[in-house]
Computed example of a mutant assay.
Amino acid sequence: MKVCIEWIYKTPKGAETTFRSGEMPAAQGLLFAEDMERTGRAKHVIFIDSYNITWTVKEMKAYLKEVETEPHNITVYFDGGFDRATSQSGLGCVIYYEQSGKSYRLRKNAFSAELKSNNEAEYAALYLGLVELELLNVHHLPIRIIGDSQVVINQLNGDWPALEKDLVSWADKIDEKLKELGIKPEYELVSRKSNTEADRLATQALNGIDITAMSEIVTE
Results as ranks from 00 to 15, higher is better:
24 M>A: 00
25 P>R: 02
47 F>S: 00
60 M>G: 01
36 M>D: 08
17 T>I: 10
46 I>N: 08
66 E>G: 11
39 T>E: 11
24 M>P: 06
34 E>T: 04
69 T>A: 14
38 R>G: 13
64 L>E: 07
63 Y>M: 06
67 V>S: 09
44 H>W: 13
24 M>H: 02
70 E>Y: 13
34 E>P: 06
23 E>A: 04
30 L>D: 05
19 F>L: 08
51 Y>P: 01
52 N>D: 11
70 E>D: 10
18 T>Y: 12
55 W>E: 01
63 Y>L: 06
61 K>A: 07
36 M>W: 05
65 K>H: 13
58 K>L: 12
57 V>I: 12
41 R>A: 09
70 E>L: 12
59 E>T: 02
62 A>R: 00
45 V>G: 07
35 D>R: 09
36 M>A: 06
69 T>I: 15
50 S>R: 13
28 Q>L: 15
49 D>Q: 03
65 K>S: 15
63 Y>D: 09
26 A>Y: 00
33 A>Y: 00
48 I>P: 08
28 Q>K: 12
67 V>K: 11
58 K>N: 14
57 V>T: 03
51 Y>M: 14
36 M>N: 03
68 E>F: 14
22 G>L: 04
43 K>V: 06
22 G>T: 08
65 K>I: 12
38 R>D: 13
18 T>P: 10
42 A>R: 05
26 A>C: 04
20 R>D: 15
59 E>R: 00
52 N>Q: 08
47 F>C: 00
41 R>V: 07
43 K>M: 07
38 R>M: 14
29 G>Q: 00
42 A>C: 06
24 M>G: 06
20 R>M: 13
37 E>C: 05
61 K>R: 12
58 K>H: 15
58 K>S: 14
49 D>S: 02
70 E>Q: 13
53 I>K: 11
61 K>T: 06
53 I>E: 09
55 W>I: 09
43 K>L: 07
54 T>K: 05
67 V>Q: 02
50 S>H: 15
46 I>W: 01
45 V>H: 03
30 L>G: 03
56 T>M: 05
37 E>L: 03
23 E>M: 07
31 L>H: 07
43 K>T: 14
44 H>F: 15
45 V>M: 09
25 P>T: 02
67 V>N: 07
19 F>M: 06
24 M>I: 00
67 V>P: 05
41 R>C: 14
41 R>P: 04
19 F>K: 12
22 G>A: 02
19 F>E: 10
70 E>S: 14
70 E>A: 13
45 V>K: 04
19 F>N: 15
62 A>D: 12
26 A>L: 00
45 V>W: 03
42 A>W: 01
55 W>M: 02
37 E>H: 05
38 R>L: 13
68 E>C: 15
23 E>P: 00
49 D>H: 01
61 K>M: 11
54 T>Y: 05
39 T>Y: 10
62 A>Y: 02
67 V>G: 11
56 T>H: 01
28 Q>G: 11
33 A>D: 01
